[in-house]
Nucleic acid binder design. Structure first.
Length: 577
RNA sequence: GCCCCCGUAGCUCAGUUGGAUAGAGCAUCGGUUUCCUAAACCGAGGGUCAGAGGUUCGAGUCCUCUCGGGGGCGCCA
């Protein structure tokens, strides 16, 4: 609808330019629904945009545009000049109503797009190493990434959801040592270091307490789950592991348990990864060496103090970075670069990395290195999301990763459920801080909890269907619906809003911003619920069979859009609540 | 010190890539029920869009600076 009008306007503007002897291209002009209803269905700023080139006052051009455009093939009912030179358009009423027919005929396909033309896109997200349960920060990233993937699929892309992790390296050694320490403590062979020492980085670290050695690492993982893992080992192995190093059974057991837990958490929030990519495989496959060799060929690699550096400062970045430490071990940057070259070798046209704000500095280095290796760095995208805080009773709870004070996805999920969790995690734009209002999320009053509000709006369409069935009225097909019967302003408003779904879905996909969908759904539900409520003015089920069919058609339209939108957010669309 | 993000109603946040008189939820206050779920709905109050300059027909939106909050600047990941 909007595209067709915009197209007509572009053509008309082109004719005006030619008439004035200007053979240049027609600049893009906006055709937007205005904020104020009195300004019509769509407003165009073309006259003001062209004022300079045509050397005529905007309002005069606007008049000429209206004349040139005519009725735009029956599309426009009325057009008038307003304000500084806007042209406001009122579409013919039946045009809006006809949209409902299109919607019903499209059914569950409504709002799908082939914009992606089947291009392969990879979305990498979560990517937490198995050192602990997922925190709510990971939770945000998980939902954000999955929604982006869902929206891209809806826009005609072929999407691979990928999780990148590393179960080797220093982090995991510390994990093993932490578990071993708790194991020995529980067997009475070691002493816990005490809260003062753990809580204060400057405090002196005890060598032993009450004659028992302190083996817990200074930078160890302090979460209670570490003790839980140790206990499980005691239950299954007794004290047979006392002489094992942290790197052995302890690390393996911890990794196995934690990764299993993470995968369960991921599944419980409705996410299904296609690939779990282990960083170690890059070493096994020789990709690290290969990438390092390729980087050397760019001539920007040099050695200093025993380490291998890359001259990022020659690529417009503020500093050089180490690729290989003087110990001979690569830094995290090198595998990261290798990983991205590997992604391209798998044929992805676009790779989207969803990451926390703490990685913001990293993106440019990977991008620059990839470009230096001859890839198109435009194909790499980063979606950075800010951190999550929790609010309960008006008080913020700050999360701390290694201290025992963070709330896990599982804990929050147990309180609020998957659908509420998902909606709350995508209601904000990624680059905004997200304050998770636990009180509101736990609210069971469906008029208050935003997630239930959306789902109930959907359930209502089924409530109406159940009512219709009870009266022996069948749900209509698109052909049964005489949309001209839907002439009330609130009905036209609703149809207009439903008609926006395809462009909202596409724009949200293109901007990687699922919150647009969440807000849109709120608007749909916010029109629909009052409409249903006010049955005195317009009961859906009435004696008038044709009117009833039309309103049931509208009901189906609402159901389709709400179900589709909830689906993009990975939320369920219940038939009854 | 340098880089990135944020600053919009009491609170939490949207704002369609520069459009007309800045919106929603929660909270507060007032109202509606013989009715397809009252587990719903209607209405009201509430704003120097952090501040100051600039760009132009037009700025919450773009540029510069200041202030405030967060993140980053490692041979950690």
């Amino acid at each position: 609808m909007r595209e067709r009008l915009a197209e007509q306007i572009q053509l008309a503007l082109g004719r005006l330019l030619v008439a004035a002897g200007d053979k240049g291209a027609v600049p893009p002009v906006a055709v937007d629904p205005p904020r104020q209803k009195e300004h019509g269905d769509y407003a165009c700023n073309g006259a003001m945009v062209l004022a300079k080139r045509l050397k005529r006052p905007p309002r005069e051009i606007a008049d000429a545009l209206i004349e040139e455009l005519g009725r735009a093939g029956g599309l426009v009912a009325r057009a008038e000049v307003a304000g500084p030179g806007f042209v406001n358009f009122w579409l013919a009423g039946d045009r809006w109503q006809a949209q409902l027919g299109d919607l019903l005929r499209a059914g569950a396909r409504f709002g799908r797009s082939d914009a992606g033309k089947g291009a392969e896109v990879q979305v990498e997200f979560v990517s937490a190493n198995p050192t602990g349960p997922l925190s709510i920060g990971h939770g945000r990233q998980a939902i954000l990434g999955d929604c982006i993937a869902r929206m891209l699929e809806n826009a005609g892309y072929r999407v691979t959801r990928e999780y990148y992790f590393n179960n080797g390296g220093r982090q995991m050694r510390v994990l093993g040592d932490s578990v071993r320490a708790r194991y020995l403590e529980r067997l009475g062979r070691a002493a816990p270091p005490g809260l003062e020492a753990l809580g204060d980085e400057d405090a002196t670290w005890p060598e032993q307490i009450d004659g028992l050695p302190v083996v817990f690492p200074r930078d160890g993982y302090q979460g209670e789950y570490i003790g839980g893992i140790a206990q499980q080992l005691i239950d299954s192995e007794g004290d047979s592991l006392v002489d094992e190093p942290g790197e052995g059974r302890f690390r393996e057991a911890a990794e196995a348990m934690l990764f299993a837990e993470i995968r369960e958490t991921i599944e419980s929030i409705g996410i299904d990864f296609d690939v779990f990519f282990n960083e170690n495989s890059l070493y096994d496959d020789g990709k690290i060496e290969e990438t390092l060799g390729a980087l050397r060929e760019t001539g920007k690699v040099y050695e200093e103090e025993g380490a291998v550096w890359f001259r990022f400062s020659e690529l417009g970045l503020d500093r050089d970075r180490v690729l290989v430490k003087s110990s001979g071990e690569p830094t995290y940057l090198l595998p990261d670069i290798a990983y991205h070259t590997e992604k391209f070798s798998r044929g992805f046209e676009t790779v989207i990395n969803v990451q926390g704000a703490d990685h913001k500095d990293q993106g440019p280095f990977v991008r620059a290195a990839i470009q230096a290796l001859g890839h198109d760095s435009e194909q790499i995208e980063f979606v950075f999301h800010e951190f999550v805080t929790l609010s309960r009773a008006g008080t913020k709870v700050k999360q701390s990763t290694r201290k025992a004070t963070f709330i896990t996805v599982d804990e929050l999920l147990a309180d609020v459920g998957r659908d509420v969790f998902r909606l709350f995690m995508v209601q904000r734009r990624p680059e905004s801080h997200l304050d998770f209002d636990v009180d509101l999320a736990e609210e069971e009053d469906w008029t208050k909890n935003p997630a239930y509000y959306l789902q109930y709006a959907h359930a209502r369409t089924h409530g109406i269907e159940r009512q219709a069935q009870a009266r022996g009225v069948a749900m209509p097909t698109a052909d049964d619906v005489d949309t001209s019967r839907l002439a009330l302003p609130e009905e036209i408003d609703l149809i207009k809003k439903l008609g926006e779904f395809p462009e909202v879905a596409l724009r949200a996909a293109e901007t990687r911003a699922p919150h647009h969908v969440a807000y849109y759904l709120r608007e749909v539900a916010g029109l629909w619920s009052p409409y249903v409520q006010d049955k005195n003015r317009h009961a859906i089920l009435s004696e008038d069979a044709s009117l009833t069919a039309a309103r049931l058609g509208l009901t189906l339209g609402v159901r389709i859009v709400l179900a589709r939108g909830l689906g993009l957010l990975g939320m369920s669309a219940p038939e009854r609540m």
